[in-house]
Design a protein around this nucleic acid. Structure first.
Length: 673
RNA sequence: GUCCCCGUAGCUCAAUGGAUAGAGCGUUGGCCUCCGGAGCCAAAGGUUAGAGGUUCGACUCCUCUCGGGGACGCCA
């Protein structure tokens, strides 16, 4: 079905053009805010009248006089300075409802006639780190945006730009090595050492002695771990890496621990003068050099980035860590009902081969120049604290590349290889400047010449009850997994209280759907630009604009179906003949019908501005309208000739709510709760 | 210093440049012989931080001021 607003817009614009002689004068049709102004209103007459210098009310008269719209609306009313108010005919409402009812998959909503290829970049967790609340908004916002655009008929390419490359990887590989040696000894040396270091961090002498011990042990392990040459790692570390994929789940928390330990150790051993002998490969020959102990991870990073067969063990370790991390992430995605999969992962490392070329191209084009030893682009209109041009650094003075370089390479890849017409980046608002400069640089380079839209979808911070960024009581970041588990737990308590007789397995499923749904819905229903206060109590409330309320509203409609059996009402048969029996009579039936046929508008508005809260507020509004109808109109007890219409309204309301919540927001809707 | 976001009812938040700025919570008062009361109806509650401007029309766009948060050369 063509969208009703579009039909009205086309018809009135046509008449408006005829009446004014103007080429462009949109009717600006929108749903009316108050029922006294009808159902829809055209706002375009005032602007058009202004343009040609006539009285707007008179112009409205002329437009209405030539407007052929009797098949849709009662006779249009002119009001205020020149609004055209439209009231839909009941016959049209019935026709639209039937159109929605017949289309099982899309509720009568057409796909776009101008499909685009749209890349949506979201989530972006880091390797070897646990996903925390900071990833929540990007992950679920990006997911909803992708679903919305996909439903509209666009070709959506999800991209999970994971942080799988960078200076921290030496640390992670080192962590893995410590873990390997701890296992070899069969002792939890990492925990013991970490505990000691943290407890004695004020005692310089103790720390120095302890670090020296660790270093000595380290060198000894390194010495022992060889098959052919010293430190080749083939005796212990190599086999350990092969074992890793089979013990992913156990090793994950240990790896996080070990990573913390490496950080602590590096911090505390700085400037203690400890050194370590390590291998460096030059032209295929092993050399052994002595480096400061605290710089060992940086040395490993360098080896990893240098690549080549002789550093293949580092590369293997990196691959293992990546795999383990992604297993953790996909657990979270599954819990969140996110559609992200391993196929969508294209991390920073993927773009390594393109980085040098990106810099070269920008230099060749005269956009990138050397400044204080670094290679920078100075996009127009950006200034720093001193009012001087602000650099977008794409290569550090030591020759290394940065995330700006990677982002440029990714952007070019998405345009050239993925054929993107639009790229949407879903990251928090703090990166706004980075993306502004990135987009400016890409435009200057001519990469967006064939009409590529670059959009940064920003969002605010999640705050705790104290109004400060959401943290644990100890001040650390909140792990996403813990948060989601707690949500399900709290929801479980609610289910237990309200519906204790359900079978256990169903309770578990409902608690999961309610808990996770509540977290997601709370986020979606807020304007993404605002910071928002995270509160389990509020999001799990059964009143107001919350997931549990929506789920309840849905379950209540579904329960009508269950009840029908006892009442000997054959819903299926009555709906099969609905095209003959449909008749909207009661005002609350008509109100609900009007709300139902506006679903397409809610989706369009949400997709156009990447704002899921437009969708949630529609769904909430729909539920409230349904509640009014439900209160006023008996369904199963209705007299025979009124019942089919009411059954249809119930069916469509349930389907719209389910579609919006489950298909577009990814929130599970139990049929019973 | 420059730039970005936010400031709306007591509280938490909405509002594609359109008419009288809306919900929920809380407050007050109603409604069950009835399909799930986790409901419905109603009332009270506002100088949209402030001052200018653009517009037929401004919470919305522009300028300035105040308040909160954030970004700003080799981290991502």
């Amino acid at each position: 079905m063509k969208s009703l607003v579009q039909i009205l817009e086309d018809r009135i614009s046509q008449s408006l053009r005829t009446a004014t002689g103007l080429d462009v004068c949109p009717a600006l049709v929108a749903p009316s805010k108050s029922p006294q102004f009808g159902d829809y209103q055209a706002n375009g007459v005032m602007a058009a009248a202004k343009q040609i210098g006539v009285n707007p009310r008179q112009l409205a008269q002329q437009v209405v006089a030539i407007l052929a719209i009797e098949d849709l609306c009662e006779s249009p009313q002119i009001a205020g300075p020149g609004f055209i108010n439209l009231r839909l005919k009941t016959s049209l409402l019935e026709k639209r409802l039937l159109g929605m009812f017949t289309d099982k998959a899309r509720l009568g909503i057409d796909k776009t006639r101008t499909p685009k290829t749209i890349v949506v970049d979201y989530s972006g967790p880091n390797i070897a780190k646990e996903m925390h609340v900071g990833h929540l908004r990007s992950t679920i916002l990006g997911d909803c945006i992708s679903r919305l655009l996909e439903f509209e008929g666009h070709i959506v390419i999800r991209q999970n730009h994971i942080g799988d490359w960078g200076t921290q990887f030496g640390k992670v590989i080192l962590a893995l090595w410590h873990l390997c040696m701890a296992r070899k000894r069969g002792l939890n040396t990492i925990q013991t050492d970490q505990k000691y270091l943290l407890e004695h961090s004020e005692d310089a002498e103790a720390i120095k002695a302890y670090c020296r011990n660790i270093r000595d042990r380290h060198e000894q392990d390194y010495e022992e771990d060889k098959k052919n040459v010293r430190g080749d790692g083939e005796l212990y570390f190599g086999p350990f890496l092969e074992l890793l994929p089979t013990i992913k789940e156990q090793i994950w928390p240990q790896l996080l621990e070990a990573y913390q330990f490496v950080n602590t150790l590096e911090e505390l051993s700085e400037n203690l003068g400890l050194t370590i002998l390590t291998r460096k490969i030059n032209n295929g020959q092993s050399e052994y050099i002595s480096i400061p102990y605290e710089s060992l991870s940086r040395h490993i990073t360098a080896m990893l980035q240098k690549g080549g067969a002789e550093n293949s063990q580092e590369l293997n370790a990196w691959k293992c860590i990546k795999e383990i991390t992604l297993a953790h992430c996909s657990d979270i995605y599954k819990t969140l009902n996110s559609k992200l999969t391993a196929n969508d992962v294209r991390g920073e490392s993927f773009y390594n081969p393109f980085l040098a070329n990106v810099v070269k191209e920008l230099r060749d084009k005269g956009l990138a120049v050397e400044s204080e030893g670094a290679i920078c682009v100075f996009p127009e209109g950006f200034v720093n604290k001193e009012g001087a041009p602000l650099p977008f650094i794409i290569q550090k003075s030591d020759g290394a590349y940065l995330y700006a370089t990677t982002d440029l390479a990714a952007l070019r890849f998405r345009i050239e290889e993925l054929k993107a017409d639009q790229i949407i980046y879903v990251t928090d608002a703090r990166q706004a400047l980075h993306f502004q400069m990135l987009f400016a640089a890409a435009k200057a380079a001519g990469w967006t010449d064939r009409q590529v839209d670059l959009i940064h979808v920003t969002f605010g911070t999640m705050l705790g009850a104290d109004g400060r960024p959401f943290r644990t009581r100890e001040g650390g970041t909140v792990k996403l997994q813990d948060l989601l588990e707690e949500a399900a737990e709290k929801a479980r308590a609610v289910v237990e209280e309200k519906n204790p007789d359900l079978p256990e397995s169903q309770k578990v499923q409902i608690a999961q759907a309610v808990g996770i749904g509540a977290v997601k819905y709370a986020d979606y229903s807020n304007n993404r630009d605002s910071d928002y206060v995270f509160s389990f109590d509020k999001m799990l409330a059964m009143d107001g604009n919350t997931a549990p309320y929506m789920q309840y509203a849905y379950a209540r409609i579904r329960s009508i179906e269950r009840k029908s059996e006892g009442k000997e009402v054959d819903i299926e048969r009555e709906l099969r003949e609905i095209h003959k029996t449909l008749a909207l009579v009661d005002s609350s039936e008509i109100d609900l019908a009007k709300k139902l046929i506006q679903y397409d508008q809610a989706i369009e508005a949400a997709a156009l501005q990447n704002r899921p809260n437009y969708l949630t507020s529609y769904l909430y509004d729909l539920s409230q309208t349904f509640s009014r109808f439900y209160n006023a109109c008996p369904v199963l007890q209705a007299v025979d000739n009124r019942r089919p219409t009411r059954l249809l309204l119930c069916d469509l309301t349930a389907r719209v709510i389910r579609h919006g919540m489950e298909d577009l927001l990814g929130i599970t809707m139990p049929r019973q709760m």
